[in-house]
Simulated scan of single mutants.
Amino acid sequence: MGAIQEPTPEMGPYRVELRRESFILTRTDAAQDMRVSEHEAVIPLTDYSHIGPAFDQALSQLERWEAAGRPTPPDLSWTADDHGQQAPATWEMECPHDQLRIRGPWIVGYERGLWHVELCYVDASAFLHAFYAAAMA
């Protein structure tokens, strides 16, 4: 259970829910094919400008988490997929056509028009670095 944040206009269709060691990023009005698998997603490049502001809102929790001395290493057991396979340890991103394909250490879901991912705060900086590099390529 987390704290759902008030979205800013810059976040467009994205919403953030803060948790202790992770956050959930949700996109409203999402197409089902945004979820490829438990660890892989496709984001339309038209969403590019909304991702940064959504992560800015989520990373406000990271500062509090770091200030608490990161009490324990993150438990990533929740990232195992239905077959017991762990999420990849690094981010793989590519831009085929007008979309960004992302595979990495997160859990990707889809339900009734809502695409969502759960991502540990500790993986957020690496995500953003890979995201901006891939989207600008």
Rank of each mutant, 00 (worst) to 15 (best):
E94K: 13
G104L: 05
W91T: 05
D81W: 06
A126L: 03
A68C: 02
H83Y: 15
Q86V: 03
V42R: 09
T46K: 15
R101V: 14
T90R: 14
A126F: 02
Y110R: 06
W65K: 07
E63P: 00
H50I: 03
D47L: 10
S60A: 12
G69Q: 10
T72A: 09
A41Y: 02
L62Q: 09
C120P: 15
P96M: 00
H97N: 12
E63G: 03
S77R: 08
D75L: 11
H129F: 07
D81E: 04
E111F: 07
A87I: 04
Q99C: 14
F127N: 01
D123N: 14
A58Y: 01
P53G: 00
L100Y: 01
E111L: 11
Y121H: 06
L119D: 09
E94T: 14
Q86T: 10
V108Q: 02
A124Q: 07
L76M: 11
F127D: 07
L128A: 04
W78A: 14
A126T: 05
W91A: 08
Q85H: 15
H83Q: 12
G104V: 08
S77L: 12
L114P: 05
A41T: 05
G84N: 09
F55C: 04
V42M: 11
V122N: 08
A124L: 01
P105H: 08
T90H: 15
I102N: 04
P74F: 13
A58V: 05
Q99I: 05
G109I: 02
Q85V: 08
Y110W: 04
Q99K: 12
E66A: 04
E118I: 11
S125F: 06
A54G: 01
A87D: 08
L128G: 02
S49N: 12
Y110L: 00
A126W: 03
I107D: 03
I102H: 07
D98N: 12
G104Q: 10
A89V: 14
W65Y: 13
H83T: 10
I43G: 02
D56P: 04
R101H: 12
A54S: 13
F55N: 00
Y48F: 14
D47N: 13
H97M: 06
D56E: 07
R112P: 00
R112S: 03
H83M: 12
D75Q: 13
G52Y: 01
T79R: 04
P96H: 00
A126D: 08
L59E: 11
A80N: 05
I43F: 15
G113Q: 02
L76C: 07
D82H: 05
E111R: 11
T90D: 14
C120A: 09
H129E: 15
T90A: 15
A124H: 05
L76R: 14
P74E: 15
L114H: 09
E66L: 07
H97V: 03
S49K: 14
G109T: 06
P73F: 11
